[in-house]
């Protein structure tokens, strides 16, 4: 089911861009929002993030994400 949802979302994102259905400022936000939902689906359905030692798994992900976002924000300034 998660898989179907992911295919669906990629499809919609693709469709939106190909047919230019969204106004430009929102494009990036909407697309990245879709990507994040897809990642969540992966994490919960496929990667079983909520099993044992889940605290450390989340620390690992969120810590990495924090540094990554800092890097992106400052590099692209």
């Amino acid at each position: 089911m998660g898989f179907a949802a992911m295919l669906f979302m990629s499809g919609i994102a693709f469709y939106l861009v190909m047919n230019k259905r969204v106004i430009s400022e929102w494009t990036a936000v909407v697309l990245i929002g879709f990507a994040i939902v897809q990642v969540m689906l992966q994490l919960f359905f496929f990667m079983d993030i909520q099993t044992e030692r889940k605290g450390f798994k989340w620390i690992s992900l969120s810590g990495g994400l924090l540094v990554a976002i800092l890097a992106i924000v400052y590099l692209t300034r």
């Binding site: 620390i59 690992s60 810590g63 990495g64 924090l66 540094v67 890097a71």
Partner: peptide, 10 residues
């Protein structure tokens, strides 16, 4: 170790 983990990839 957490610092190394997130710092060294940069």
């Amino acid at each position: 170790s957490i610092l190394i983990l997130f710092a060294f990839p940069a």
